[in-house]
Design a protein around this nucleic acid. Structure first.
Length: 272
DNA sequence: CTTCAGGGACCGG
DNA sequence: CCGGTCCCTGAA
């Protein structure tokens, strides 16, 4: 199966720290959020197996009108540079639970470490499925995590994140966390989970629910806005007040501005 | 060997 | 709002 794309880069989208459950096997990127899927890009052509075109377009943010979004966000010199540096980048839409687990595991961690943790958990709490002869584990299941108990989870050396992961698994197990709930209800519920604060919440809403108005601020973004948007944020000290200012500045697509700025700010990072 | 930071959250004051 | 602390890993 294949699909034409424009202003899209599979490599940069999947290695930009939004999603942690992809592996590159030969020329293909492979994942299994529920069933095994593999995708390869050749210029403006995406070649994919294991799912529908609709699935791909949703998962990789290909439904977004990226040129309109970039035009609307292009409000100053700095974001203009970030936009031009981020050709092909899209905000993914990987689902509520995958984003919740991924960004709990991201706390005080670097990207390769997060990826290793998700892979390791998938081999214990995911389901092994076959794809063209090779075994692919699906995303860690919160039911299995909860039912297996805390002692097993400790084997994965997640540090203080162990109880956070169990808290999330228990919450998803016991409550109805449907993605079709109103966004405000989902936010309120997520904050009841031990290990989800403002920042992780914003990541889950942006990358898990594709709420493009969400504006997660990690240490890199905070450095950037302190430097380049100091006039805007002025007296704002707290996370909430800074977020309020930045989202009202960039508008309903603030999440894309955040992704471009994050990507641009990591030019000199150690793992790129 | 030690030190430090990595896409923070939580608790106490 | 501020500052200390939490667990683990890898780089310096």
């Amino acid at each position: 199966m294949e699909l034409k794309v424009e202003d899209f880069s599979l490599d940069s989208t999947l290695t930009s720290g939004q999603t942690f459950f992809w592996r590159k096997l030969d020329d293909f990127w492979v994942t299994s959020f529920d069933k095994p899927v593999k995708i390869k890009q050749d210029h403006d052509r995406l070649e994919y197996y294991g799912c529908t075109e609709e699935y791909i377009r949703k998962l990789l943010g290909l439904k977004d009108d990226i040129s309109s979004i970039k035009t609307e966000l292009d409000k100053d010199d700095f974001i203009d540079r970030a936009i031009n540096y981020s050709t092909g980048l899209r905000v993914v839409n990987e689902g509520l639970w995958p984003a919740t687990l991924g960004f709990i595991l991201s706390i005080q961690s670097n990207v390769p470490l997060i990826q290793r943790r998700v892979i390791a958990l998938s081999e214990a709490y995911g389901e092994a499925k076959e794809m063209e002869g090779s075994k692919i584990y699906s995303f860690p299941d919160y039911v299995k995590i909860f039912e297996s108990g805390i002692d097993k989870l400790k084997c994965f050396k997640l540090g203080f994140r162990t109880r956070f992961v169990m808290s999330a698994a228990e919450y998803f197990y016991k409550h109805n966390m449907s993605e079709s709930l109103p966004l405000e209800d989902i936010k309120k519920r997520l904050l009841d989970i031990d290990g989800i604060g403002d920042k992780v919440l914003d990541c889950v809403m942006l990358y898990g629910m594709h709420d493009l108005s969400a504006f997660p601020m990690d240490v890199w973004i905070l450095r950037v806005i302190d430097k380049y948007y100091s006039k805007l944020i002025r007296a704002a000290k707290s996370y909430k007040s800074k977020r309020e200012i930045m989202t009202s500045y960039f508008g309903k697509y603030a999440g894309y501005a955040q992704l471009f700025m994050y990507n641009y700010s990591r030019l000199n990072s150690t793992w790129k």
